[in-house]
Write a protein that binds this DNA or RNA. Structure first.
Length: 108
DNA sequence: CATATGACACTAT
DNA sequence: AATAGTGCCATAT
């Protein structure tokens, strides 16, 4: 059993990313409470490249770059494009496709 | 317990 | 703008 709450939570949030949207490693880390654990987030996803329920390809860099991918960044870009995310020059428009994790309770 | 690794981020050059 | 160097955090060994 994995007690790695961190990694476990990373998958949970990644699964919440709707199709056609993208999140950033840093943002994910922040949602977990570890704002500076962007690297750790990436590690978590990299360790689970087989998780079909975890759309790890929807997680990109903070600067809009698609970043790396276990099966190759090209594959990642392809998947994103298929989902409706326009990837141009290996970058995505975070202003348009960025998905912010929100608590289902809050509504402010 | 210390060292090494890694799908990142930021600052300086 | 692009590249390099440094920092950060979690896991694996």
């Amino acid at each position: 059993m994995s007690s790695a709450k961190f990694t476990d939570h990373v998958y949970a949030l990644t699964r919440l990313i709707p199709q056609g949207k993208v999140a950033t490693y840093s943002s994910l880390a922040r949602a977990l409470g570890n704002s500076g654990a962007a690297r750790a987030v990436g590690n978590a996803l990299n360790k689970n490249p087989d998780a079909p329920r975890t759309p790890c390809h929807r997680v990109v860099r903070a600067n809009g770059q698609v970043g790396d991918f276990a099966s190759g960044s090209a594959k990642k870009i392809k998947l994103l494009k298929k989902e409706g995310v326009i990837v141009w020059q290996g970058k995505v428009d975070l202003e348009k496709y960025f998905y912010e994790f929100k608590n289902k309770k809050q509504g402010c």
